[in-house]
Simulated assay, not measured.
Amino acid sequence: MAHSDAKAARPLSPHLTIFRPLITMVMSIVHRITGAALYFGMLLLAWWLVALASGPEAFGTVDRFLGSWFGMLILFGFTWALVHHMLGGLRHLVWDTGAGFTRAARNGLAWATIIGSVLLTLLIWIVAFIAR
């Protein structure tokens, strides 16, 4: 049996403090966070639907909350999370086809996900306010 006090000559596990964050690392983490945010955002949708079915008073309460600056901020964040998660899913779909694995393609898809999610979210909200 090997001596238990002998130090093993093996590398330590890499940690975020050792590596410089890569854009693909950040996108992986953000994709998971937006997935969790969408889970909780569905509670807002359920609240809205239950209030809609419950009558004008219940719906008015939800409408006042979601129409407030705080509610709009939450809805804006939910919209961004939805768009970002969708674009991240499309990025993974591209990878599932076997394409986009070069360093330039990976980074390009990651940046396209970030920029596209922000621009699409702004576009959705601008169109919504114009249509309102």
Rank of each mutant, 00 (worst) to 15 (best):
T24R: 12
T24F: 09
V30I: 15
R91E: 14
S4P: 03
R103D: 13
G100T: 03
V50W: 12
I115M: 00
F19P: 00
Y39N: 11
M25D: 15
L12N: 13
W80M: 13
T102N: 08
L52H: 11
S4F: 10
L49F: 08
A8T: 08
W69N: 06
W95K: 08
R91H: 13
G77I: 04
W48M: 09
L73Q: 04
M1N: 14
G88P: 02
W95Y: 11
A99L: 14
H3T: 10
A128R: 07
G71R: 02
R32H: 15
A6H: 10
P14R: 09
L43K: 02
A9S: 07
T121L: 00
H85Y: 14
G60S: 13
R32G: 12
G35T: 08
Y39V: 15
T102L: 07
R132W: 08
F59I: 02
W48Y: 13
H3D: 14
M42A: 15
V94Y: 05
W111V: 14
L122H: 00
L43N: 01
P11S: 12
F101V: 01
P14G: 04
L93R: 14
T97K: 11
A105N: 05
F59N: 02
V50R: 08
W48S: 09
A131F: 06
A6T: 14
A9E: 09
L119A: 15
A37T: 05
L43S: 09
F65L: 13
F129V: 11
A6N: 06
T102A: 08
M1K: 14
A112W: 07
S28M: 08
R64Q: 13
L120E: 00
W80Q: 10
H15W: 12
L123Y: 00
L44V: 03
H31G: 11
H85C: 08
I18K: 08
L120S: 00
I115F: 01
V118C: 08
A131W: 12
A112D: 05
A104G: 03
W69G: 05
A46H: 02
H92L: 11
L44T: 04
H3I: 07
W95D: 03
T17N: 07
K7A: 11
L109V: 04
I124W: 03
S28A: 09
F65K: 01
H15I: 12
G41D: 05
L49P: 01
P14T: 06
G116E: 05
E57D: 06
P56T: 11
V94L: 10
R91Q: 09
S54C: 00
V50P: 03
A46Y: 10
A2W: 13
W48V: 03
